[in-house]
Design a protein around this nucleic acid. Structure first.
Lengths: 308, 308
DNA sequence: GTCTAGGTATAGGCATTGCCTAAGTGAATC
DNA sequence: GATTCACTTAGGCAATGCCTATACCTAGAC
């Protein structure tokens, strides 16, 4: 049953002698003899022939040898790899997040991460709603979560700064909105909204409700960048986090008025270990490369448990 | 250190719960908890995260898992294979023999063996002298020896019958020797002999000495079938075991007069186990497919410790 | 033949390990 | 707030593993 017996067996096979193997293993010779006997009893036949000046493998022993070696090697590797991961030298981490962040901010961080630690892959889980994210991570999915501040959390929560929500309109509409865009001015437009159970949908609705209207849908989508492109194409205004806008979008992008912010955080179930600790440290150094707009001048949204 | 810990780890990872894994392993749950802790201490970090309703792999655990699985599999396989060999269901055996037998009789036996147990390969060690064979096998080479009866042996020795020595001459010489060929008649010929340290050389010399002459060499070889072909080509007479003659040899082959026999045996260092036992059983059933000539009417040679 | 040397097996003692039962803790649920 | 579920801690007991000392066997030397 014990790996030690395997190692003992290998040592005997290698040395061709019980006593020499015992010396190499730093144990007494009778102990080795005992262990070998036990192993042979378990196998059901002798593994070595006892010659007058040493031990020689029987056919049984020869058959046993390569697999025993493989077992010991695998075990060593298991310990080695696990230790490497535990100390943060290698491994793979799972990040759970909401889709707006996966599409928007994360790529920059992951590029930095990949440059620093080429060996360690990242697995990404995306959710469409902050509540779902929070619940799934709480239930054990992923090693860390990146998303809006969780509503109730007993593990560590690290603030990554705030992202601002912007209104996206066709490029031609630029002149009409030199500063920000008052949401109320768009009350009777048909909007580019998100799917009913998408976190950003709840959020847009909450913002509009505060301005005293319910946005009517021109179209609904589940893709953040699709929403941006639809708005740019003139389907209707969209309200999006600035960091989630696709690069090179041909559109007029203006802060909402009143200004709207959402705090982003990284949260975990427990104290981070190994690679996760490293990743969190990276986040702490450069908070997602986030353009952090202070929420002083504006309204912070996204704190109620029902939005993204 | 223990493989059991690996199995425990795998069970927990599979079940996602310590208590369920304990039930599956038929041990108490606290015992599992203890073992896991010990394993984690050894690895240097937690392998599982403790959630409120179960265990979840940490990145360390995820890294550990595949190697642990491989280790357990290899160990299982090691036991399985060894047991199979111990019971004679599979494996590989090493046979040590002298070259005249390897060239002559063994192929038939090995073909039968291969037909019966296609999975089990045979490794062959050939020696040029029975003394060398006996010494090497005594010192641990091979699982069994097939050769002339050993001069001093304390393990089992199984007689396989006798082979007769024949004189090989060119086909044209046939008429002159209707029955056997008296060695003395060839006393002044130049012989096809074997290398000085070859077992058959000693043997031919012993036989000729008994007839009162020393054979002069026309040529010396180390290959039994080369000797037969040289003799057939008329280089000189050769004295060979009949079973070692190559098939389809175009020559006159006659028994020596006086008739000369050599006993062949199978001998081992100890009681045969598993496959070796099977092989010995096969030998016992069909003694090498040997044409067994009774030595009654002739002289048995090859019993002194100096010939093959 | 006796003796010595090299190598493995057996015996008995002691510390460690592994498993058990019983009780404790913490979170989720009714 | 009581109950349930799941893991952890604590303490006892049997089994395992290693040790020293001794016995046994073979081979080689005197």
């Amino acid at each position: 049953m014990s790996l030690r017996k395997f190692e003992y067996f290998l040592a005997i096979a290698e040395e061709g002698s019980l006593s020499q193997a015992a010396a190499k293993l730093h144990i007494a010779q009778p102990s080795l003899s005992q262990q070998l006997r036990a192993l042979e009893r378990h196998v059901g036949g002798p593994l070595f022939e006892r010659l007058s000046r040493g031990m020689r493998l029987t056919p049984t022993g020869r058959a046993f040898l390569p697999h025993a070696r493989a077992a010991v090697r695998s075990a060593d590797r298991a310990y080695g790899v696990a230790r490497a991961v535990a100390t943060g030298d290698a491994g793979e981490i799972e990040i759970a997040t909401v889709s707006s962040i996966a599409a928007g901010i994360l790529p920059q961080v992951l590029r930095t991460w990949h440059e620093r630690r080429a060996g360690s892959a990242v697995r990404l889980h995306e959710f469409h709603h902050r509540n779902l994210l929070e619940q799934q991570v709480h239930d054990g999915l992923g090693d860390l979560a990146i998303g809006p501040r969780p509503s109730s959390w007993d593990g560590p929560v690290l603030s990554l700064g705030h992202e601002e929500f912007v209104v996206v309109l066709p490029a031609t509409a630029a002149a009409r909105h030199p500063g920000g865009v008052a949401l109320g001015d768009l009350a009777d437009r048909d909007w580019v909204l998100f799917g009913q159970e998408h976190g950003l949908n709840d959020l847009v609705h909450a913002a509009c409700t505060l301005e005293g209207f319910q946005p009517a849908p021109a179209v609904r989508t589940w893709q953040v960048d699709a929403a941006a492109r639809l708005a740019a194409a003139g389907v209707g205004p969209a309200l999006l986090p600035d960091n989630a806008l696709p690069a090179g979008l041909d559109a007029e992008v203006r802060p909402a008025r009143p200004r709207l912010f959402r705090e982003l955080t990284c949260y975990l179930r427990g104290e981070p270990q190994g690679l996760v600790r490293e990743f969190v440290a990276l986040l702490r150094q450069s908070p997602l490369g986030l353009r952090d707009h202070r929420p002083e001048g504006g309204r912070a949204i996204g704190l109620a448990p029902t939005d993204t």
